[in-house]
Design a protein around this nucleic acid. Structure first.
Lengths: 111, 111
DNA sequence: ATCGTCCATCGACGATATTCGATAAATGTG
DNA sequence: CACATTTATCGAATATCGTCGATGGACGAT
């Protein structure tokens, strides 16, 4: 098990929390799973119609997901194409990471 | 990879979100890591002095963590002894579970 | 240049969450 | 019984979050 016995300081706990906060909302989880199941990038409009919430709400959630690099953006003429960041899915901390005090992973940029 | 291509319905997304909400707060993460590093159960008073937040706040967070079975309680005379639920740490969903649409795990009672 | 489309941002609102102090309930001690 | 200790709960203040409608900016088409 190899636990780290040093106490977890506040700053590290906040970093962990920001990771979990990104997936602590049902709408964001829907968006993420939507992007993951279509392998292809999706425009905001497509996500809006597929998720059933307002356009500004989708845009807001996509911004939060992009801040932790969970999704990646690519502007193409007038539309923004979002896609899942596969590398980020695998580096997302597990509960065991938190409990054992593993170093907080940095979000991968993926190109 | 074996993804599930069926769309994720709202109810399932909510269940996932409730898992991540439990670890979406820095104070709760501190409490959880505290309990995990001491193998022994801790009383509320010990957690209060170790975490530096108010007693009622600690009690509140412990209640939330106990609701998802992340910690287990055992009343002993006047004090409540909390300890981490190892089984729950390992069944906590990963980001890959969310993305691939794995079934949402149920919190283990552990005795 | 004007219009239409697509998206991000702003402002606002209600809902939810975090935190604290005070109080109450349970239990052991004198 | 009275008292101290420990924890849970209540009430309230504050902060954060999720959602929407409206606005504005970027870009392409006519």
């Amino acid at each position: 098990m190899n636990e780290n016995t040093a106490p977890l300081q506040r700053a590290e706990a906040e970093e962990y929390a920001s990771w979990f906060k990104a997936l602590a909302d049902a709408t964001r989880i829907q968006i993420v799973s939507l992007l993951a199941r279509r392998r292809a990038p999706m425009s905001v409009g497509e996500i809006v119609t597929a998720s059933g919430v307002g356009q500004s709400t989708v845009s807001h959630h996509l911004k939060i997901l992009a801040e932790v690099r969970f999704v990646l953006v690519e502007r193409q003429s007038t539309s923004s194409l979002y896609r899942i960041n596969e590398a980020c899915v695998s580096c997302f901390p597990t509960a065991a990471d938190v409990v054992m005090g593993n170093p907080v992973p940095a979000a991968p940029t993926c190109e």
